[in-house]
Write a protein that binds this DNA or RNA. Structure first.
Length: 554
DNA sequence: CGTTGCAGCGCG
DNA sequence: AAAGCGCGCTGCAACG
């Protein structure tokens, strides 16, 4: 059963009930905005509908702030995007473009933490957007598109996964990552010195800059300027081509160690220093915004505070509240396992029966050399042509012809300008006009550039099928996990999802609930595998750590 | 002056 | 140890 949520012209809100095939199942209900949370909660409890909206952002943050959580939804915008591009669907036109939603005012402030509890937040700011009729029409078009597609089951699952993702994303933003400001500030003081008053560098960072200036004989140097730094390096006889840390490491000069240390410290100061704490952590929580399917491959992106790049350096500040634990889990070697399943490469799947896939593959054909097996496999997924990983490709091809052929096919398709598609049906974007023009060009110089562009695109599509399908597995994993945590919560066993990072999740759980949450993580992984790949002989083990702070995990 | 692109580094 | 994929954020440098 579907329940459409829409603004009505008179400033109230319309609810429209449809049956499971999308037909009207009764008269509309119109309610004042202030009554919405109560009504939604009642319907959720009695009917358990699939809520239909343009985008979760219109409704769910405010429902959450009123204390209402929902089981499932159909997010028309997310589904419109994937159905429009999917190679599984036929002609399908939608006006539900996501483009206008992506235009954000530059420099906009971080969203305030949703206030808790009382009153209806719908009173303050009305919902804008399509009417119930428009939403109903769009839903019908989407359901038809799915039913008429080459893989209705897969697309239904993908729509459900992205929609569940929209719910989890809003819930995680509302919950926030528990962040211990004191620990973070102590760590900053230890490494950088006391917080500076104005805009100058902190003491230890300035000391390090001076040490560097002395070593280079460049008293006025601003080490943050790549151009100045490059000139100073050259004057000191260091013939670096770039100022990248790993290239500089090769030089034996006495200025290099302080320079590398400076870069490390400067990065901490700029990216995750006091200003970051002020901007992004409130009431002991870091609340980033998650952008479901914000990456072409279907991975999530985030906005605000660099939530998907929390450096190892500061992870000790991610700390469970008193009486709580963090349950941190990650899927082991997710992408190679996805490749084995996608390519139906049973030999590779057999090697992956091992909890350590790389060790299994090393034993099967790399003389037990785990490092070699890893480099070879990642090279196949990323499209490495040179270096060690390029040299190992023939060996990998002999061992796992099906898996290698699968990614090679994706690469060839991309080079020819075709799109490629994940297991559940997310397709890569078509090549740009510019790219296609370049491919048609005739001059020798242009041909050279065209070949290079074709190879670039081949590497992209090669990786797309694997990264994208891995993202689907991971989204099904957290969707399943979310349902299990809701069931546990109903029994008084309390843990909430607070972080998701491609192949990793974090639950903030009451101490007594941690073990049950860990089990739920494992069961959700098994369920996700079954949803995507049925009984294919591939395993997706997860490693789980129950810890007090994030740095203690793995 | 504000905007845009790039280099560099963080994460998976 | 450092090539191949996908991102976000920062400060500097160049552009209009």
């Amino acid at each position: 059963m579907y329940e459409i949520l829409a603004p009505s012209p008179d400033g109230q809100i319309v609810l429209r009930t449809l049956d499971s095939s999308g037909l009207r199942a009764g008269p509309d209900t119109t309610v004042p905005r202030s009554d919405l949370p109560g009504l939604v909660a009642r319907l959720e409890a009695s009917q358990r509908p699939r809520w239909v909206w343009r985008t979760a952002a219109d409704w769910y943050p405010r429902l959450l702030a009123s204390g209402v959580t929902l089981r499932r939804c159909h997010d028309l915008m997310l589904c419109a995007t994937l159905l429009t591009n999917s190679a599984y669907t036929g002609a399908y036109a939608t006006s539900f473009t996501s483009s206008d939603d992506l235009i954000e005012q530059p420099g906009s402030l971080p969203p305030a933490a949703p206030p808790q509890g009382q009153g209806s937040l719908f009173e303050e700011e009305p919902v804008h957007g399509p009417s119930a009729d428009e939403l109903e029409r769009e839903l019908a078009a989407q359901l038809r598109s799915i039913a008429d597609s080459a893989h209705p089951g897969r697309l239904r699952l993908l729509c459900a996964a992205d929609s569940a993702g929209a719910l989890v994303a809003a819930e995680m933003q509302a919950a926030g990552i528990p962040w211990d400001v004191e620990t973070h500030e102590r760590l900053l003081a230890d490494q950088l010195g006391p917080r500076p008053r104005g805009f100058e560098r902190p003491g230890r960072l300035e000391d390090k800059a001076n040490e560097l200036r002395t070593q280079l004989g460049a008293p006025g140097l601003n080490p943050d300027s790549p151009q100045e730094l490059m000139r100073a390096l050259h004057r000191a006889g260091i013939e670096a081509r770039t100022t990248r840390a790993w290239e500089l490491r090769e030089f034996g000069h006495a200025a290099i160690p302080p320079l590398l240390e400076y870069k490390k410290m400067a990065r901490l100061f700029a990216a995750n220093g006091w200003a970051w704490l002020d901007a992004w952590v409130r009431d002991g929580r870091f609340r980033p915004e998650y952008v479901v399917a914000g990456v072409v491959t279907g991975r999530w992106a985030s906005r605000g505070g660099g939530a998907l790049q929390i450096p190892k350096q500061v992870r000790s500040a991610v700390r469970a509240r008193p009486g709580h634990k963090l349950v941190v889990a990650d899927a082991s070697q997710l992408e190679p396992r996805v490749l084995a399943a996608l390519a139906r490469d049973d030999a590779m799947a057999a090697a992956a029966r091992d909890a350590d896939l790389y060790a299994g593959i090393a034993a099967a054909g790399f003389g037990g050399d785990r490092a070699k097996a890893k480099v070879a496999l990642l090279g196949a997924i990323y499209g490495a042509t040179t270096g060690e990983s390029g040299r190992l490709m023939p060996q990998l091809t002999r061992l796992y012809p099906r898996a290698v052929a699968f990614v090679e096919q994706a690469a060839r398709d991309g080079e020819r300008g075709l799109t490629v598609t994940t297991h559940l049906g997310r397709s890569s974007p078509a090549p740009s006009e510019r790219w296609q023009r370049l491919q048609r060009s005739t001059s020798a110089e242009e041909q050279r550039r065209a070949d290079a562009a074709a190879r670039d695109r081949g590497r992209f599509t090669r990786n797309f099928v694997v990264q994208g399908t891995a993202a689907e597995w991971a989204e099904c994993w957290i969707a399943e996990l979310r349902q299990q945590l809701r069931r546990l919560a109903a029994l008084g066993v309390k843990g909430e999802l607070v972080y998701f990072l491609h192949d990793e999740v974090m639950i903030h759980a009451e101490e007594e609930a941690a073990a049950a949450c860990a089990d739920a993580v494992q069961e959700a992984a098994t369920a996700a595998k079954r949803l995507l790949f049925g009984d294919a002989p591939v395993q997706f083990p997860v490693s789980i750590a129950v810890v007090d702070s994030y740095d203690q995990a793995k």
